[in-house]
C-alpha cells in the first residue's frame, strides 16, 4: 500500500515507555497533523520512524510503502524516501550547506554516477530564492550560527532538494515569527502532491492555518486517541487538551 502504516508500535528510551501500541496511517498524497501536549510522544514517533539508535522498539511494525522500517539504519530509511525536518537542527561545522546537500544527493546515486554541478546549483539557487534564503548561505557552515528561522528554512530547503516520498516536520513552527512561518509553510505547500505524504507535528493550530491538513490526530500517552478533520485542531486551540484527557479517563 502507498502509505506509512504503523501498527501496534511500542518504543522506549532509557527504560521509559514512550509509544504504547500506536496505530497510524499516512497515505501518500495527504497531509496529516499530529498534535498533542508536551511529552505525549510526538517527537519520539518521528525519531523511531527515522531509525534513531537511542530508542528501543518493543513491539509492532512501521512500514513505508510495504517496506518494514524498524531495524533499518537511519541512512537506509532516509534513502528509501523518508525525510525528517528536525525540531532542533544540528550544526555541522565546516561543512557548507551546498556541500552538505550535495553529499546527501550523492549518497542516493548509483556508484559511478555523480551530481551534475551546474544543474545542482541552478536548482539550489531557485529553491533558496523561494525560501528567501540569501545566496551567501550556500557557503555558510550547516546551521552554525543560524537563527531559529534560518535553521528551519534550511531544513525545508534540504527537504525540497532531496525530493522525499514522505516528510515529517517535527515542530517546524517553533521559534518562527509570523513572516518566517509563512515562508516555511509555503515551502511545504509547494511540496504537496499526489505522490508524497506529509506529516506535520505541532503544538499549535497556528501552523495549520498555513499548511492545511487532510486529517488531524491527537496524541496522548504514546497513542493516537482522536482523529478528525482540521476542525479538531481548532477545537483543541479553543478548549485545550484537558477535555480529551477527561474523555479518555471516562472511557
Amino acid at each position: 500500500m502507498n502509505s506509512i502504516q504503523i501498527d501496534n508500535l511500542s518504543a522506549k528510551i532509557d527504560g521509559n515507555n514512550i509509544l504504547n501500541n500506536l496505530n497510524f496511517t499516512l497515505p501518500k498524497g495527504e497531509v496529516h497533523a499530529i498534535m498533542g501536549p508536551n511529552g505525549s510522544g510526538k517527537s519520539t514517533l518521528s525519531k523511531v520512524l527515522s531509525g534513531h539508535p537511542d530508542y528501543d522498539v518493543t513491539n509492532g511494525s512501521a512500514k513505508m510503502d510495504d517496506v518494514e522500517l524498524l531495524g533499518l539504519s537511519p541512512d537506509e530509511i532516509a534513502r528509501l524516501g523518508l525525510f525528517l525536518a528536525f525540531q532542533y537542527p544540528i550544526e555541522v561545522p565546516g561543512v557548507s550547506i551546498a556541500n552538505f546537500i550535495r553529499a546527501a544527493l550523492q549518497a542516493r546515486m548509483e556508484e559511478g554516477q555523480n551530481v551534475k554541478a551546474v544543474d545542482y546549483y541552478k536548482e539550489l539557487y531557485v529553491k533558496m530564492d523561494e525560501l528567501g534564503i540569501d545566496k551567501s548561505f550556500t557557503s555558510r557552515s550547516m546551521n552554525e550560527g543560524f537563527s531559529g528561522g534560518e535553521k528551519k528554512r534550511c531544513e525545508i530547503l534540504q527537504m525540497s532538494m532531496l525530493n522525499p516520498k514522505y516528510c515529517i516536520l517535527d515542530e517546524t513552527d517553533s521559534g518562527l515569527d509570523i513572516d518566517a512561518l509563512r515562508v516555511v509553510s509555503e515551502g511545504v505547500n509547494r511540496m504537496k502532491n499526489s505522490e508524497r505524504g506529509i506529516l506535520v507535528i505541532t503544538h499549535y493550530q497556528r501552523l495549520l492555518d498555513y499548511i492545511v491538513p487532510d486529517k488531524v490526530h491527537v496524541m496522548w500517552d504514546g497513542q493516537i486517541v482522536r482523529s478528525g478533520t482540521k476542525e479538531l485542531a481548532l477545537e483543541l486551540e479553543e478548549r485545550g487538551y484537558d477535555w480529551i484527557k477527561e474523555e479518555i479517563a471516562a472511557a
Binding site: 541512512d75 550544526e91 534540504q158 532531496l162
Partner: peptide, 13 residues
C-alpha cells in the same frame, strides 16, 4: 551521536 544521526537522516551512511 546527534550529528551523525542528523547526517544519516539525510541519507549518508
Amino acid at each position: 551521536e546527534e550529528q551523525i544521526f542528523y547526517m544519516q537522516q539525510r541519507g549518508l551512511n
